[in-house]
């Protein structure tokens, strides 16, 4: 931290590149969904631009940070930015947890004839034989027969893996603070490895669900909430593990000082956030 000034960059080219990339990606995806033949090419092109932007922008930030252009005050802006970003992610997951709560506790019981809610007349006129229960694929038995996901096999192992990765991440942080580069790098390697291991096991679980249990995204409300919640979480684990890999690479390059390592902190906060979301998933999706 060689300067006291608030660093204000004057020309930014990455934002517009990223915007164009993201827009082409999404327009491409929309075309894919509509069955249009230009969709896949567009989507891949957009993604490539977007990834180039990510690499370029983050490299720029890392170079600027290492050359001491960011004052303590700039660092505070970054930390606030990351904190509020994580808050927005919390709200995003809250929607799907809320959906799970609402369907389990309100709409499915109403469809089964409980309470004086709106679903009761639906029960009486459309599906008088439907009995409320969980898991369910609804009175129309959408998606056909399925077997619900168990708790104490892979999911429990994954819980242990993520919790351990939280510990190794903190251990790495202690190494960084104590100027013990070896501990920092070893801790990060362990964290990233555990992260990708988690994703791998999750993929195995999905494979088993689709091929052996008849459990798919289309298995009524149980399949919908199960795959939406665990899927978005898995995606976040992937992103978190990639961020941590970059942090690992930078640590190996000799970046970060005990008093200045925002990227490490942000990655660690993000990692702990996906960890906490998983605990919520384990309790509300797998256990209850």
């Amino acid at each position: 931290m060689s300067t006291n000034a608030y660093y204000i960059p004057h020309k930014a080219t990455w934002p517009i590149i990223g915007t164009v990339g993201l827009m082409i990606t999404l327009a491409g995806f929309a075309n894919v969904l509509n069955g249009s033949s230009i969709g896949p090419a567009m989507m891949i092109m957009g993604l490539v631009v977007f990834i180039i932007m990510l690499a370029g922008w983050f490299t720029l930030q890392a170079v600027e940070s290492e050359s001491g252009m960011y004052s303590t005050q700039v660092g505070i802006s970054y930390r606030m930015g990351m904190m509020w970003f994580i808050f927005s992610e919390v709200m995003f997951f809250a929607v799907f947890f809320g959906t799970l709560w609402y369907t389990r506790n309100l709409s499915v019981p109403w469809l089964g004839g409980f309470g004086d809610g709106p679903g009761r007349s639906t029960h009486e006129t459309l599906w008088p034989a439907f009995e409320a229960m969980w898991p369910t694929n609804g009175p129309g038995e959408i998606g056909g027969e399925f077997e619900p996901m168990g708790t104490w096999g892979l999911p429990f192992l994954n819980t242990l893996i993520l919790l351990t990765s939280g510990v190794t991440c903190t251990w790495a942080h202690h190494g960084l603070l104590a100027k013990n580069r070896d501990q920092l790098i070893k801790g990060l390697i362990a964290t990233v490895t555990l992260g990708f291991l988690f994703v791998g096991l999750q993929a195995m679980e999905y494979h088993e669900a689709y091929t052996e249990m008849g459990l798919t995204l289309g298995s009524g409300i149980y399949g919908s909430t199960f795959f939406m919640l665990t899927g978005f979480h898995g995606l976040h684990v992937c992103v978190g593990a990639i961020i941590l890999s970059v942090v690992l690479f930078r640590s190996w390059k000799g970046h970060f000082k005990p008093e200045n390592h925002f990227a490490f902190e942000a990655a660690a906060w993000y990692w702990h956030f996906v960890d906490v979301v998983w605990l919520g998933l384990f309790v509300f999706v797998y256990m209850m």
């Binding site: 709409s107 709106p118 609804g138 009175p139 129309g140 798919t216 409300i221």
Partner: peptide, 27 residues
């Protein structure tokens, strides 16, 4: 999140807002 569920209901067979699958349009 809400519009994402619309997207999956339309294109990926989910039942968030479909009573036949145990969901609810009122949700």
């Amino acid at each position: 999140g809400a519009v994402t569920m619309l997207l999956t209901d339309r294109f990926f067979d989910t039942s968030f807002f479909n009573a036949a699958g145990g969901g609810d349009p009122v949700l």
